[in-house]
Design a protein around this nucleic acid. Structure first.
Lengths: 241, 241
DNA sequence: TGTCGCAGGATCGTATACGATTTGAGCGCG
DNA sequence: CGCGCTCAAATCGTATACGATCCTGCGACA
């Protein structure tokens, strides 16, 4: 069972402190990340070191580093002496992630209103357009990914590096959660983003914060958090610890 | 210039998912972490892979993993082809960390009030006693470390794994910040903790949240965030990017 | 005398090698 | 026929090796 990973990848390295050449590790990391977030690799999928290494023409050393990094973000689970697997967030994880997002993104939204600038608004509107297009084309995975990037862009506008870092992780986990526990499309999600940008642009802080909170709540409510057979992976995880 | 690291260390592995034997990496990780947080290793100190490796009798492979992990938490900075250094949080970092803590710990406090139980309160009071003792003995580093652990214990009581994880990182960074930007002791910090526990035990939620917020604000206010010569390390960092 | 260039050493990045652990299949026995 | 045991293949954990990069100190030249 080959992993079917993309060879052409987008650069996923957001931590380019010195703006160096995007290292090989960053490329592989980005490839794995998007592959997972676009659901080409389902939860529980084994991520063998040798397999990935030979796929990208690097040694296990590099792959191990990438997997450890992804594990730290909660996208991958590493079991000692067994290997790495695509994470399968539990229902409790889902609750916690969305609770944290509501808390942090409310603060981010308020900051974004304060620091809004025409250029920032323009970037948001461009994002909106990309999202609309993905939705129109029925590309669900891309829509989820773009929607996530919208939230990160907001954090960037807020000018809060720490929130941005935390949210980057939470959004990635959210994407995984959305793809696993998907029940129905949250209605008018793009409309939410739209109205949010409008409120931010107009400087209506409390309205914007309320919209964000409501937006996240609605996404969470649209999840199906009941019993999950989620066919075919780690039994121990299903039976609980 | 030897690193002067402790050989006897406390187990720092909080992520014992399978409760396995605390691996060698965890031991080294814990040793480095406490050494940094107790200021035996100052900001900017070079953490050579070979040096640490030979100190603990492991190969660079292990050390690299540990350093990468610490880097992900913002305790260590890794510069490509140059090595790892104890992080030197900027003033902006300090602001962001404490802003995030105020936000998250307010939520944690509210949760802790909800889920309080006699056993939990007892653990908090035991912590209080340990803190008082460290303060009495004038062991500043230990006092800071214990004070941080108090906050993490609170997150544990709140029963929110994600908040606990995030706070563990933020508290570690806070400790480093406190040790760097220390100006004066925040007055009655232990008294703050004391009153906080009282409010939690009595179930006075809004008072507890207010105390926590005030507590963190006061710690932050006690920092000296002016110009920093911080003698003797990376000039590039001082001159900014 | 001060600055520039150039080895030499130290340190990091990556690949590879080898022992340890897990897993799954085959086989014998109840 | 099912259950447990043994052993081999696969995979991971760790150490080591080698090439690449960076820092340092010394000497030549303006």
């Amino acid at each position: 069972m080959g992993l079917r990973l993309p060879v052409i990848v987008d650069a996923g390295g957001r931590r380019a402190a010195t703006a160096d050449t995007p290292s090989k590790a960053d490329r592989i990391r980005g490839a794995l990340l998007t592959a997972i977030l676009e659901h080409r690799l389902g939860p529980g999928t084994k991520l063998g070191e040798d397999e990935i290494g030979s796929l990208y023409g690097v040694s296990r050393t590099i792959v191990r580093g990438v997997l450890q990094s992804l594990a730290h973000e909660g996208i991958v689970d590493i079991e000692k002496n067994r290997g790495a697997f695509v994470a399968h967030p539990s229902v409790a994880d889902a609750r916690e992630v969305f609770e944290a997002r509501r808390l942090i993104e409310a603060a981010v939204t308020a900051l974004a209103v304060e620091r809004r600038a025409p250029a920032a608004i323009a970037r948001l509107r461009a994002h909106l357009e990309a999202e609309r297009q993905a939705t129109e084309e029925g590309d669900r995975a891309a829509a989820i990914r773009l929607s996530g990037e919208f939230h990160i862009e907001l954090a960037r506008i807020a000018g809060h590096r720490l929130y941005e870092t935390i949210l980057t992780e939470l959004v990635a986990r959210s994407s995984l959660i959305l793809l696993i526990y998907h029940r129905r499309e949250p209605r008018c999600a793009d409309d939410h983003h739209q109205r949010l940008v409008d409120a931010i642009e107009a400087g209506r802080a409390s309205e914007a914060v309320g919209l964000m909170s409501h937006h996240l709540a609605e996404i969470f409510e649209a999840l199906d958090l009941d019993v999950r057979p989620t066919g075919g992976h780690s039994l121990a995880e299903i039976l609980g610890p």
